[in-house]
Write a protein that binds this DNA or RNA. Structure first.
Length: 460
RNA sequence: GGGUGUGUAGCUCAGUGGUCAGAGCGUCCGACUGUUAAUCGGAUGGUCGUGAGUUCAAAUCUCACCACGCCCUCCA
């Protein structure tokens, strides 16, 4: 009977002394004179199963020499072992080498640097750390969809290619079918009417504007898709290709927006703690001590909320000395964010930001100086969520666009939403990989993405 | 993009001017009756990132280049 290690761990008593077959990869092989032990991982579970073999095997000598990384078929009986570190093991009757692992297999049963494993991105999913990270990543996807679907949100996919450069979130990757080599030889401006879309096109940096369209029809919607940023960012929290979740809710204000974000974060934490206990215990032990306690605390307490002005007041009163001086009309520096989350010992919403440092679509507050924006700051992952109440008043939106040099004609459809049944509405963007960093304690965003893209790195 | 640091065996690292360049792990050979990153013995393994320079002598000092890490800016 073919089964899985995950299934065995759940119901091993039922398999007592029964004959089963497993397929998997060797994590270690400890051979002695007349017996040996193989730790086999079959990919279905974080834990390995110990395969015990001895001279009764027809191919005992060959089995002793099986190397780490090889793939096997193992047939044998499940033996319950209450006196050993593992609750059960398999006593092998047959061990068949399916795919040999050559002598220079780079992954050894020992510590490797994260840097080395990044360069071996095709093999790192077989290590304990990355097995855990990517299983939690999969569960995180599920948790997010569950959360929104249970609340009757409609999921939409926003376009990946856009001809708008007004999305306002940073440098964009250009998309073209023009012959670059030929263009190099020509002089004068490029004629984009000859390009594939008849105009200059790029990869999207956000699906928010399109999500707003759907929110004005379905009320509550969310996107979950890839976005692209061409910034020369060399940090532990930035990549060039990232997945974002962007909910957008109509008939809602900034408070509703924050309530939703907070409820979502709590829901996600609970889902992961419930469904990946082995993985979370591993992170807690080897990646970030006290991780589980931290997450449990977060899921039980309401998040700190404060205005940008209040945050600056806190920073000005702080005994710490900052390289960047806190200022009421400036953005928070990374050192400020770190101070705030440490000072309040958990996630912090910062709201009502100076309008000049925020995007054109954010709703202007009555003071005429700030906008109804919010950032959720967390320890480790930095800005986990950025959101705002959107400007629903046509005249105010237009004057803000003028102030910030955003082309009205290009966004005629966006302005139309304010002409036909406009509603107060709000939304936010959640960085998927940053959420994963926060949940796992992994410090570098490149280690929570299967094949990360960063400046100068597009391997695999 | 700005700053800073690192690059020595397959991996993790030691070696900061002086004979043939070191350890642990891996790999290979051997020992071992219950191992948990098993242990023990032996062997294997390196144009010391690349190029130029200083010096009697360079892994070690200088310069350039390349690659990568970290910090800052940008944001998710």
């Amino acid at each position: 009977m073919k089964t899985s290690v995950r299934h065995l761990y759940a119901k091993y008593e039922e398999y007592k002394d029964k004959d089963i077959t497993l397929f998997g990869w060797v994590r270690s092989n400890r051979a002695q004179k007349s017996f040996g032990f193989i730790n086999l991982n079959d990919g279905t579970y974080f834990e390995t199963i110990q395969v015990v073999y001895d001279t009764e095997l027809a191919n005992f000598k060959d089995t002793q020499k099986i190397r780490v990384g090889a793939s096997l078929r193992v047939k044998g009986d499940i033996v319950i072992t209450p006196d050993r570190p593992q609750p059960f093991e398999i006593k092998a009757k047959e061990v068949e080498l399916i795919g040999d692992s050559e002598e220079d297999y780079p992954i050894q049963p020992k510590r490797h640097s994260r840097e080395f494993l990044r360069k071996n991105a095709h093999l790192r999913p077989r290590t304990n750390l990355f097995t855990a990270v990517f299983r939690v990543r999969s569960l995180l996807t599920q948790a997010i969809h569950n959360f929104f679907q249970e609340r009757d949100f409609v999921h939409l996919t926003s376009p990946i290619i856009t001809a708008s450069d007004a999305e306002g979130a940073g440098e964009m990757f250009q998309v073209t079918t023009l012959d670059m080599e030929a263009l190099k030889k020509e002089k004068g401006p490029i004629d984009y009417s000859k390009d594939f879309f008849g105009k200059k096109a790029s990869l999207t940096v956000s699906g928010q504007l399109q999500a707003e369209v759907f929110a004005q029809a379905f009320r509550d919607v969310y996107t979950f898709g890839p976005t692209f940023r061409a910034e020369q960012s060399h940090t532990m929290t930035h990549v060039s290709e990232l997945w974002m979740i962007e909910p957008e809710i109509a008939f809602a204000d900034l408070k509703d927006d924050m309530d939703l974000a907070e409820e979502m974060v709590r829901y996600i934490i609970k889902h992961i703690l419930d469904n990946a206990p082995k993985e979370m215990a591993f992170f807690d032990k080897f990646v970030e001590k006290g991780l589980i306690k931290k997450l449990e605390k977060v899921s039980n307490e309401s998040f700190k909320r404060m205005t940008h002005k209040e945050a600056i007041d806190v920073l000005k009163d702080a005994k710490a000395s900052f390289e960047n001086k806190p200022s009421y009309d400036k953005d928070l520096a990374t050192e400020h964010e770190k101070y705030l989350v440490k000072h309040f010992d958990g996630p912090v919403f910062v709201t009502d930001w100076p309008k000049d440092i925020k995007a054109f679509y954010m709703r202007l507050n009555d003071d005429q100086k700030t906008v109804a924006a919010m950032d959720l700051l967390v320890p480790g992952a930095g800005e986990l969520i950025g959101g705002s109440q959107r400007e629903e008043r046509l005249d105010v939106l237009k004057s803000r666009m003028k102030e910030m040099n955003v082309d009205e004609e290009e966004l005629w459809w966006y302005l139309d939403l304010r002409r036909y049944g406009s509603t107060p509405h709000a939304g936010y963007g959640l960085g998927f990989a940053r959420m994963l960093m926060y949940l796992t304690g992994v410090e570098n965003i490149r280690d929570v993405i299967p094949f990360p893209r960063t400046p100068n790195n597009c391997d695999f």
